[in-house]
Nucleic acid binder design. Structure first.
Lengths: 101, 101
DNA sequence: GCATTTTGTCAGATTATCTGACATATTTTT
DNA sequence: AAAAATATGTCAGATAATCTGACAAAATGC
């Protein structure tokens, strides 16, 4: 049970912690930058990780980035990470093979 | 900013995480076993630490303890800890004194 | 037996949050 | 430049979440 990723924080606290408006928080969700859970009644629940994510997004927007830019950059980054991961797997495959005790 | 002690969790999530009823959670506060913060509007906000505390309290009650017993025991324990702390301070005082480089 | 402890429940009020829509200022695109 | 897209504010009306205070009741303590 990770305090950082468990989704337990309501909208009010999120706006307090981030300094953002409700409107902004919901808009960033609409743009698929954060993914809150919901209560049975439909209220959003965020994690501390989500809160940090929102602050990160807000900072970039203040720096002149646009939401699509942010997503585009992250798409590229994660693609690179995938490549790196594959390379790492290949390396370890070749490395573990000859290592025979 | 500690995820564990920051008071950000509402009543609904607390009852989910603890399995307790709202009634129980409020009663344990009335008996001064937990100390939630409040929003401007008056809603309670708990930390993960509070949630663990509530579970601990509930467990002891299930084991036949009564609330006054729990508080009494903790009063004694913290008194002992105060004593231990003082003893520790005295010890280190006497230890650091002769240690002259 | 009477008092205390702990929990349930219910009513009524207030706070918190939701969706959807319209407005708008500032870019970006064509 | 005109049109389109972006990001945010705001407002209304609805629903969900939470609060307090009170009464009831079962279990346990003294």
């Amino acid at each position: 049970m990770d305090y950082k990723t468990k989704k337990v924080i309501g909208m009010g606290v999120v706006t307090e912690l981030t300094g953002l408006s409700e409107r902004q928080v919901r808009y960033y969700e609409e743009k698929k930058l954060v993914f809150p859970e919901r209560t049975k009644g439909g209220s959003r629940k965020y994690s501390f990780h989500d809160v940090e994510r929102l602050i990160e997004v807000a900072t970039k927007l203040e720096d002149g980035w646009r939401i699509q830019d942010i997503k585009e950059r992250e798409r590229r980054l994660s693609a690179k990470q995938r490549d790196d991961l594959i390379r790492g797997q290949l390396n370890s495959a070749f490395r573990t093979f000859p290592t025979k005790k």
